[in-house]
């Protein structure tokens, strides 16, 4: 992996975040406490004079790592975040399609009904997955939360879709152009606090963080940001290879995302 021009990436993403804020009355961001959504919040602070000007949502299935919960509390306090924690109802399987597809998405739907958010900022990146590479920067979801991926609106330059009849909300994707290594360069440059699980301990580290049931660590000795960047410069392993396989297959991802998954 090679680094992109971070300054250019940041400027583009700041523009997107400000468009989202200006265009919609009521927006929120999803925060998984992972590296991407945390980097996005750091960028929002740069974009909005030092403060994250929208609520951040954690969909909590109660099976995240203890380190993740601790990190959530610490950063929410430090950055004065308007944190909304929604407990997802645990039904049936606690892994893969059933878990991410209904447990998490249903909880999000319920919250969206209560709070009427027009737009949700989601920190996905194009390089993560073939399906995510097909996303628009502003991507409408239908009333029943579906991503109509076979009929996406046109997106030209800096002019993004608005909320129309039949749209429940728009997903806003400020980090689509970023690659994994760019996220880490940004974290390094801005000294963004990070979940400790990303750093190697006894020869293992989490490269991509989900919940305890679907994520496994990878062999690594990268225990600092510099070493992580070094590792990414040469690795041939895919970022999400530590994620539950049934979820990562492209069709499963297409079904999940059509249903409202991130």
């Amino acid at each position: 992996m090679i680094q992109q021009d971070l300054d250019k990436l940041e400027e583009k993403s700041v523009f997107v975040l400000r468009e989202a804020k200006a265009k919609f009355k009521n927006i929120a961001a999803l925060w998984s406490m992972g590296k991407d959504s945390t980097a996005m919040l750091a960028l929002a602070r740069k974009a909005f004079l030092g403060k994250v000007p929208f609520p951040v949502i954690h969909i909590d299935n109660s099976i995240d790592f203890p380190e993740t919960y601790k990190f959530r509390e610490e950063l929410a306090k430090k950055w004065n975040l308007d944190l909304i924690v929604v407990k997802s109802e645990i039904r049936g399987e606690l892994s893969g399609f059933a878990c991410c597809g209904s447990n998490k998405t249903d909880a999000l739907k319920k919250l969206m009904d209560e709070r009427n958010f027009d737009a949700l900022i989601v920190s996905i990146r194009r390089d993560e997955h073939g399906i995510r590479a097909k996303e628009r920067t502003f991507s409408p979801r239908t009333k029943d939360f579906k991503w109509e991926y076979k009929d996406q609106p046109a997106e030209l330059w800096g002019n993004y879709s608005s909320k129309m009849d039949g749209t429940s909300h728009l997903r806003v994707h400020p980090l689509l152009d970023w690659n994994e290594i760019d996220i880490w360069n940004f974290i390094k440059k801005e000294n963004v606090p990070m979940n400790p699980l990303y750093f190697a301990k006894d020869g293992w580290r989490y490269r991509s963080l989900g919940c305890t049931h679907c994520t496994v660590p990878l062999k690594s000795n990268a225990d600092t940001i510099d070493k992580i960047i070094e590792e990414l410069e040469t690795t041939k392993t895919e970022e999400r290879s530590g994620r539950s396989q049934d979820k990562e297959q492209e069709y499963t991802m297409a079904r999940l995302r059509a249903l409202g998954y991130m």
Binding site: P140, P153, A154, L156, W157, N159, S161, S162, M164
Partner: peptide, 11 residues
């Protein structure tokens, strides 16, 4: 100097 012509969200 460039623009899209839209009707709603339709190009």
């Amino acid at each position: 100097g460039r623009f899209g012509i839209f009707e709603g969200n339709d190009l």
